[in-house]
Amino acid sequence: MDAIVIYSILTLFDITLVLTMLWLAWYLLSTEDIFKAVVLFISFGLLMALAWVRMRAPDVALAEAALGAGLTGPLFLSALRRMNRTRKGERRLDSNENRGKDHNTEQEQA
């Protein structure tokens, strides 16, 4: 009896986690706003760490939490800021995907 309860709870957890991950990935890949995409990617990395724990791979989970969520996010944000700075100097002309102007202030505070 106990085993069945545990099994169904785990399966429910699996399905929730997988659906959330897929939705997040879809959203971050299709949203128009690059800044939003980067933030969603950070949360996606944290969910991946959860998935690694579920897969009984704690080593990978530790590395993912530190690297995937903690380091990739700042890397993307600083690159975004650098690109926006370049564009503000009127050198970036083909930017259609990120409506970055209203986000410049946010990133500089971040």
Partner: peptide
Amino acid sequence: HPLRKILAVNV
């Protein structure tokens, strides 16, 4: 967009 491409490679 290059950043989007890099995000896609990461995914």
